[in-house]
């Protein structure tokens, strides 16, 4: 088993006034050659938007972009004509492919909105751009994995152009749960949204990240009520 640990406070913090963000991996003007990616996982930004503020229209191409609101809601508009609101309890994905322009604003004028912005390298360049958004069942199904993303249209969750699977779980204190990577060549990146959990005997706290590869099974034990995101990611792509 190989692993990499990213303690929460080792993330790069950037305060733009309207946006407070923590970058697990190098992004924008922040560059650390030791923290560029975990396999196909390239961006993990933990963003807080001020009331009514957000990202004006900007372009993307050739990237699978996943947004998971943790608090509040985002108002989304894009060049494909989509105009939606994505709120806590939902997940949004864009396959940017040959190009998409979009904006994301905090829907609320009286409170911040928080979300995870995750970028995965696609397994194919220049695909047709697409947008997808679904509601999640994480609150209804405690103490088990809830798949929110896969490579397959017909599978649970949203789908992307990459052999990646995402799971969310809300675990009660003391709960034990296992996970086996879907593919032998995949690694697993665990991000603790809230709480404290032991993963293969490594204790993780709120907003810590832990990447593990060359392993057949991971064992989790929640030390507090814990909310985690697990990303099952190709290590080569």
């Amino acid at each position: 088993m190989k692993y990499i640990f990213h303690q929460a406070d080792s993330r790069h913090y950037n305060n733009l006034g309207w946006l407070q963000t923590y970058h697990t991996f190098s992004f924008s003007n922040y560059f650390d050659p030791k923290r560029v990616n975990f396999g196909a996982l390239r961006v993990l930004n933990d963003d807080t938007l001020d009331p009514a503020k957000g990202f004006g229209q900007h372009p993307h191409d050739n990237m699978e972009i996943v947004s998971i609101p943790l608090e509040g809601a985002l108002e989304h508009k894009d060049s494909q004509g989509n105009k939606t609101v994505v709120k806590k309890g939902e997940v949004q994905v864009m396959s940017a492919g040959t190009g998409i322009f979009h904006s994301e604003y905090n829907r609320y004028k009286d409170r911040t909105s928080k979300f995870l912005q995750i970028w995965i390298y696609p397994n194919k360049r220049d695909v047709t751009p697409r947008y997808q958004q679904i509601s999640l069942e994480v609150d209804k199904t405690r103490n088990q994995w809830v798949q929110i993303l896969s490579p397959y249209v017909e599978d649970a969750g949203v789908w992307i152009h990459q052999d990646a699977w995402f799971q969310l779980a809300k675990l009660d204190q003391g709960t034990q749960i296992d996970y086996a990577p879907k593919l032998a060549m995949n690694g697993v990146y665990v991000f603790v949204i809230e709480g404290q959990i032991e993963v293969n005997e490594k204790v993780l706290h709120r907003r810590d990240g832990y990447g593990i590869w060359e392993t057949e099974k991971l064992h989790f034990q929640a030390q507090e009520d814990t909310y985690i995101l697990l990303m099952d990611i190709p290590m080569t792509f």
Binding site: S26, F27, N29, V43, H58, H60, D61, A96
Partner: peptide
Amino acid sequence: HYGGGTGLLFN
């Protein structure tokens, strides 16, 4: 180049 815009460009 991946991602579009400036997110990864400088990186």
